[in-house]
Structure formats: C-alpha cells, structure tokens
Amino acid sequence: MTPSTTLSWQVTLGNVLRRTAVLLFLIALGLYFSSESEQFLTERNLTNIAQQNAHVIIVTIGMTLTMLVGGIDLSVGSVAALGGAVSAGLIVREGLPIEAAVILTLAMGFGIGLTNGALVVFGKLPPFVATLSMMGVARGLTLLYTNGKPISGMGEAYTRWGRDRLSVPVVGDVPLPVIVALAVVLLALLLLTRTRFGLHIYAVGGHQETSRLAGVPVSRVQLLTYGISGMLAALAGMLLAARLYSAQPQMGVGLELDAIASSVLGGVSLFGGVGNVPGAVIGGLLIGVLGNGMNLLRVASYQQQMIQGIVLVVAVTVDMYTKRLERR
C-alpha cells in the first residue's frame, strides 16, 4: 500500500485550481465590469444583483440537489410560475391569509416535486422526460388558473418580500428575498454536509445499485429530493411575484436553464454524485453578475445570450481540464 498516492490528492495544484477556478472567474469578471463601468461596484448595484437573482439561487439549489442525486428537474420554471399564481390567487380570490397561502403553495410545490420523483422512481421514466412533461403540465395549469392574465393586488404583506429591506448590523440593509435565499443556501449546506439524507443524496447519485446494496433507502431519497426541488421552485415563484407586484403566467420561462447553467458552472456533475452548494451559489452569482454587467455596458439582449453561452462553454471546459489535472 502506498500512502503517497492517498495523501497527494489533497494538495495538488489541480485540486486547488479546481476548487477556485469559477471563483477566480467571477472575481475577474467583477474586476472587468468595474473597470468598464463606474456603476458596477456601487452598493446599490450589488444589492440589485443580489435581489434580482435571489430566486435564481433558490431554484439552483433545488436543481443542484436533483442533479446530485443523478437526475435533473426541468419543471422548476413552470412550477415557479404556478407557485406565484396559486399563492396570489389564494390571497386575492379566496381571501386566505398570507401565511396560509404560502404554506399551501409550498405544499403544492412539494407535491409536484414528489410527482416528478414518483414518475422517476416508480414509473422508471428518465428524469429528463418526467420533468419535461411536468414542465408542460405546470405551465398549462398556470395559464388555466390565471386565464392567461396576471393576478395582482396581493397586498403589502406579500409584495414586501420582493424588495423591502431589513437592516442587518454590520452589513447594512439587505433585501428580504436575499435573506430568504441565504436561509435556503444555509439549510441546503447543512443538509448536504451534516445529515444522513445529504450523504445519501451523494451516494445514490454516485452509484444507485451500490447504495441499494448498502441499505440506503434509494427510492425515498430520490422522491424527497425532487419534492424539495419542487418546493423551492414554488418559493422562488412567490418571491418573483412579490418583486413584480403581480403573478405573471409567463414568469420563470427559461429559469430551469439558468439553474442548470449555474449548477454546472459551480462544478455539479450532470451525471450525479459530484458537486456542492457553495459552488452552485458561485455559479448562480456568475450568471447574475454577467447579466447585470452586460446591461450596464448596454450589450444588446441577443448578444447577451450568445455571450452567456460562450461563458458557459469556457467555464465548463476549464473546469473539466482542472478536474483532469486533479487526477494526477
């Protein structure tokens, strides 16, 4: 037995690079934008970035979980829209108190996620197919429920979660959606690093059969993971509706792509079992900063999409290259 091979992996240059590559990328991007635009590095703009991307980060966390377990959740954008619409509808049309509306909406998101999970676990559908169908169904339900028109008038108690600020000692004023996102990130971090369930997510994503042999409740782990993703999508939808003052039926279109891009940028493997929360958050921020910076530099929107695509390819290539370095 050669101990050298067992110790060296922690300290190789490749490993260090790999852990910080995307972070360095983010910092470089920040430096570039602040040199090109005076407004970029202002407190106002940074708060803006955080506020506008809080819902993306939340959805990204859910996506990261489903990707870690070896799946994917394409329905998050539609579920977010449905979540926004249903919560708004419950308050405006049914006159429910906000707390009840929020809880019911979260439960609905969880239920939709469980359905995704059940299609994968019991229906043996590939996650891509199951959640792609759900993406269509949830969008359709949203359109049905809203008759294709925005629902507004949820009241101040609801909309304040979109943009109000809470003054936090030392840091200053922090928008409420950012606080919600931070809470989600923290919980996910604890879940993945501290709990048995978190370890089981990695195990199932790493090798399903082996996990089964080790006595891991594979089906339950998968079901719950999809459930959480659905619930987080519904939460994100409510924050989005709150920020926009109304639940729009076309909200969250393409959100799943942002979430997948963020996760992948953050080093989450599309094949499961590899990745972590901090990485995914950095990936989400990278996408947010890129969008914001390009807006400040007045890049036209179709060029923005192109640049985003290129950045994704470059970042993932660098990531894979450093991963190879880590090998030896």
Binding site: R196, L199, Y202, A203, G206, E209, S211, A214
Partner: peptide, 21 residues
Amino acid sequence: LALIPYLDAGKNIYLGREPQG
C-alpha cells in the same frame, strides 16, 4: 466492487448506517 467512487473511504464504509450526531 460495491463502493461509490466519489465518496471517501469513511463514508463508503458507513454508508447506510452512519453514526448519529
């Protein structure tokens, strides 16, 4: 071999029966 390649040795050994915190 029934080990999960990306998990470390400790986690592999106690997978499915982790000591509770």
